[in-house]
Design a protein around this nucleic acid. Structure first.
Length: 375
RNA sequence: UCCAAGGUAGCUCAAUGGUGGAGCACUCGGCUGUUAACCGAUAGGUUGUGGGUUCGAGCCCCACCCUUGGAG
């Protein structure tokens, strides 16, 4: 019995969009799917049952952060990450590869792995493919990500090539260190920066490993959207149709549409929760900054088309007030709305694909949200 | 009534006699595998009032007004 099953339910004929279903030990996940991010074993400001009630069946957490604090051994002792954080759906754990990018000044890369200086206490730690697999095995995630290097943008071709080839070698080591194959699936990560031929090279090297799923990494790292879409166009074609494709770190509503249209099945992003804590929300009419004075006496809901708990019970005026007053409830309510918005958006997208009207939904989305998502 | 300390941005406070600043608040913007309840920008001033000394005063001198504390 395999740790992960992917069924391709429908392939759209007018685009690469497709409907699928992933089954892991903990849940059945309808795709395309958006995965909320819970880096430190919590989707910030939200209770697991809220996320579950919205219909989300999978969330993402992070190897690097949990290894540093509270430590993977402790989580193993607690009975695994699911039990520890009270989440009974599926969990995908990122490998710490993104931290190679985001903690740029605090790390040193070698063939063996990456030496990090903890951003918490400055202590030194070595993450290797083997170590990362050990940590993710202890956490007990349903989907483990291979250890990769997320190259910065811009980066010169030579750097990107060396980096991607090392990532491929690290993937091989991850696979060799992967023993809990009955319960946990390992995904490989494509790199290659903005160079299409390098994307192809990376894809060939990782697909050869015959893994249950593949992701596209190294995008949405500061490049213009046109470039990201352009690279995505090609990337997907290099990945097998019968395996789930995961675009890492992408999650603005427009990018979700563009990703789905290009054949992506899975997405994750900190955007909805982060911008919520900073007073920004998604609505059916585009972005809305609850900080703006124009909402001071606006007693209507955030989004009149939304039927989430927040939109059913609170006004913009109230949400503005608690945000300005720096009340904790502000983060809770705005995060709830934003996650609901994306989870629901994906639900609509799945239905549209089933009914052969994804393109119409996509067009309508851009019409209704105006220039909010302009490139 | 006397004594003391003090009056500088909306608030709390900086500023050897030499171009009046900061934090917070306000207004706006940004955030894409979380080092982020974060970061950035705009705006905001007759330095309590009136005199004086000085090339030059928020700062020194005089008077007055106001605030706080103490004494009676």
């Amino acid at each position: 019995m395999s740790s992960l099953k992917f069924e391709l339910l429908k392939q759209s004929e007018r685009s690469k969009a497709r409907r699928g279903r992933i089954t892991t030990l903990h849940s059945v996940i309808e795709t395309p799917v958006f995965m909320p991010v819970g880096t430190q074993a919590t989707v910030k400001a939200l209770k697991p049952e809220e996320i579950s009630d919205m219909g989300a069946r999978i969330i993402l957490s992070n190897t690097y952060h949990l290894y540093l604090r509270p430590g993977h051994e402790l989580i193993k002792e607690a009975g695994g990450l699911h039990k520890f954080m009270n989440w009974d759906g599926s969990i995908l754990t990122d490998s710490g590869g993104f931290q190679v990018f985001s903690l740029g000044k605090l790390r040193k890369i070698s063939e063996e792995g990456v030496k990090f200086q903890s951003h918490i206490d400055g202590s030194s730690h070595m993450l290797t493919p083997e170590k990362v697999m050990e940590i993710q095995t202890a956490l007990g995630s349903d989907i483990m990500m291979a250890f990769d290097e997320c190259a910065p943008y811009p980066a010169d071709r030579n750097y990107v090539k060396n980096s991607l080839e090392r990532t491929s070698r690290w993937l091989k080591r991850c696979k060799e260190a992967h023993w809990n194959t009955e319960k946990q699936a390992l995904f490989g990560i494509m790199q290659g920066g903005m160079y299409k031929d390098l994307r192809k090279l990376s894809a060939e090297q990782i697909v050869e490993m015959d893994l249950p799923g593949y992701s596209i990494g190294g995008l949405s790292v500061g490049e213009p959207k046109e470039i990201m879409y352009d690279v995505m166009d090609e990337c997907v074609d290099y990945l097998p149709k019968e395996k789930p494709r995961y675009l890492m770190g992408v999650g603005s509503p427009d990018c979700l549409f563009e990703g789905v249209a290009r054949g992506i099945d899975m997405f994750d992003c900190v955007l909805p929760t982060r911008i919520a804590r900073n007073g920004m929300v998604f609505t059916s009419e585009g972005k809305l900054s609850i900080k703006n004075k124009k909402y001071e006496r606006d007693f209507t809901p955030l989004d009149h088309k939304c039927d989430c708990y927040v939109c059913r019970n609170y006004s913009r005026a109230y949400l503005r007030h608690i945000f300005k007053a720096n009340e904790i409830l502000s983060s809770m309510l705005l995060s709830h709305h934003n996650i609901y918005y994306l989870v629901n958006l994906m639900k609509e997208i799945r239905l549209a694909i089933e009914e052969d009207r994804f393109e119409e939904l996509r067009t309508r989305f851009y019409e209704e949200t105006g220039d909010t998502w302009k490139l």
